[in-house]
Computed example of a mutant assay.
Amino acid sequence: MNETIERILNHKSIRKFEDRELTSEQIKTIVQCGQAASTSSFVQAYSIIGVKNKENKEKLAELAGNQMYVVKNGHFFVFCADLHRHELISKIEGKDLTDPLESTETFMVSLIDTALAAQNAVVAAESMGLGVCYIGGIRNNLEEVCRILNVPKKVIPLFGLAVGYPDQAPDVKPRLPFANIYHEEGYIENEEEIKKQLSDYNEIISAYYEERSGGDRNDTWTEQIADMLLKKQRQYMKGFVEGKNFSIK
């Protein structure tokens, strides 16, 4: 096992950072590593917004559910699906790209491109001895996020990424069993076997939470996910996406 694989397998979310800003060189390196990720047909349908201003960080933290590590970190990145520059391509080339830019496929490409770039950035940051935490909570109120960050049409902030020098060392959270994730030659749909795997995983996760919380928490993974999915979240999203001219066709 090489050092890169060890770092990937040791990934954990960091929610407490030292009071130490990233250098401009570190920021540039992380972004460039994000750019080096694969991109569908070289479309490169994303942008990354860096946030240093404390007041803006505090506003984003409040919108994200008062997650203060949005404020207290080395640097805060916001990853956005971006078809705005592609709309400009339409003008540069004198070709009507309205329909292709509003297709479901292009929408999916923008989401996938953004996620691939972000994960490359995470691996790069962790290789530099930094810690990270994805912040999906910025989607709680994207209208306000867009106002704060001056985001135009055809651009959707998808998630934030807090990066900095770790001031905590949490344990790695156990993932689903390999057999639950990996299928060969086709999807293996064995309901009883999957239930058995999930039951075994529930015991692992329950023990993990119990140890981590000092006995205050011992819920299972299936219980946690079922309760989370039952809560209606961000019901405005379809209208917001369409309002950003990302119409799904």
Results as ranks from 00 to 15, higher is better:
residue 156 I to T: 04
residue 110 S to A: 15
residue 142 L to F: 05
residue 141 N to T: 12
residue 113 D to S: 11
residue 116 L to I: 14
residue 128 M to H: 05
residue 158 L to R: 03
residue 160 G to R: 03
residue 137 G to M: 03
residue 113 D to K: 01
residue 125 A to T: 11
residue 129 G to Y: 07
residue 135 I to R: 02
residue 142 L to N: 15
residue 146 C to M: 06
residue 173 K to S: 05
residue 149 L to Y: 06
residue 127 S to P: 03
residue 129 G to W: 05
residue 157 P to V: 04
residue 158 L to S: 09
residue 136 G to H: 08
residue 149 L to M: 11
residue 143 E to M: 02
residue 111 L to G: 00
residue 136 G to V: 08
residue 117 A to Q: 06
residue 132 V to R: 01
residue 156 I to Y: 04
residue 171 D to A: 15
residue 176 L to K: 13
residue 138 I to E: 06
residue 125 A to F: 06
residue 166 P to M: 03
residue 140 N to L: 09
residue 148 I to D: 12
residue 164 G to Q: 06
residue 160 G to A: 11
residue 164 G to D: 01
residue 134 Y to R: 03
residue 162 A to G: 10
residue 120 N to A: 08
residue 138 I to F: 10
residue 170 P to M: 12
residue 127 S to R: 08
residue 126 E to C: 08
residue 111 L to V: 14
residue 148 I to P: 08
residue 151 V to D: 01
residue 125 A to M: 10
residue 110 S to M: 06
residue 173 K to I: 14
residue 170 P to R: 12
residue 110 S to Y: 03
residue 115 A to F: 07
residue 122 V to W: 01
residue 112 I to A: 13
residue 139 R to I: 01
residue 136 G to A: 15
residue 176 L to H: 13
residue 145 V to K: 02
residue 123 V to N: 15
residue 124 A to G: 04
residue 166 P to C: 12
residue 147 R to P: 00
residue 119 Q to F: 14
residue 175 R to Y: 12
residue 109 V to M: 09
residue 116 L to R: 10
residue 165 Y to N: 09
